[in-house]
Nucleic acid binder design. Sequence first.
DNA 1: GCAATATACTAGGACATCCAAGGGTTTGGA
DNA 2: TCCAAACCCTTGGATGTCCTAGTATATTGC
Lengths: 169, 169
Amino acid sequence: MGTPLPRDPIADAQRNWERHGWGDVAAPMAAITAIMRTQQILLARIETVLKPFGLTFARYELLALLSFARSGALPMNKASALLQVHPTSVTNAVDRLEKAALVVRSPHPTDGRTTLIELTADGRTLAKKATAALNAEVFGKSGFGDDDVDHLIRVLGTFRRDAGDFTEE
Amino acid sequence: MGTPLPRDPIADAQRNWERHGWGDVAAPMAAITAIMRTQQILLARIETVLKPFGLTFARYELLALLSFARSGALPMNKASALLQVHPTSVTNAVDRLEKAALVVRSPHPTDGRTTLIELTADGRTLAKKATAALNAEVFGKSGFGDDDVDHLIRVLGTFRRDAGDFTEE
DNA sequence: GCAATATACTAGGACATCCAAGGGTTTGGA
DNA sequence: TCCAAACCCTTGGATGTCCTAGTATATTGC
């Protein structure tokens, strides 16, 4: 996107907030903005690694999810719930994965409304390769210290639970 | 997107990673995935608050940035750099803000290549109102504890610096 | 048993993001 | 001085996300 800025734009924003009398929410604003930007950076790294495999993160996530399912198949609505994205996003991803012969749609044996997404042999192979690449290039080089990783998992886990993502734990 | 899941899908993914022999990167994977999901939740909250103002987060960010500029105007490339998004994204946002009469494009006085984005009176008013709403509804109710906010700012700040977002500090 | 309600997926549309490419403007080195 | 390289913005295209509706299938309740 360009050259590094001389100063942290988010820290600047936080100062601006304080300067305008919003000091009480300046810090959370900065933290939230930092999360948004960090996500953007991470997503870009991930997409870069996946590009050679012809995958995007959305499609990879679906592939990875299927590869962990016992039978290598899941109903679309199940996938939507587990990936926590809108059903139409899953439809979109499946359309493209199916076109690439990485998954197949098949009717649910007992429920006529439901469509199963099944991993093909190619899909399973590609998922493995892509996972290895992501592990090596992104997750293995996250840049976060071990303590910070633990902290992030804990804090964001609480946040997600409070936001209604899940109940238990 | 729906009802809460019985279990944390990211914790499940982490267990799957460990089960498949990728224990060394399972934790960072979980932390990164949690950041992605948290961003999604926060963005949804923000967009919900901004919708009544006819704004999206991208447009709000631009408006807020302009409202902090001395003259209420910035060159497009400056805005692109500070918001850390692609120039075309700024073009897109300005197109829509201009259509809503919240900003105006004007030629740069000395550099014929550059276009200035100027806040209109309406734009400045709306920015103030939208900021008040976000402060009250999102940043003021982030759900993060003060210590966690500080930790996030610090850890993500280091991450962003290492990623090349900025140099100093 | 049948109508009303709920659920599952898809089609179409609005937005945002990025990349690649094109046209205009400046700058800088030969 | 002058042309090539650098820079700025926009257009067009690919993706992804969500929402709203519409169609088809199940389930419920009377």
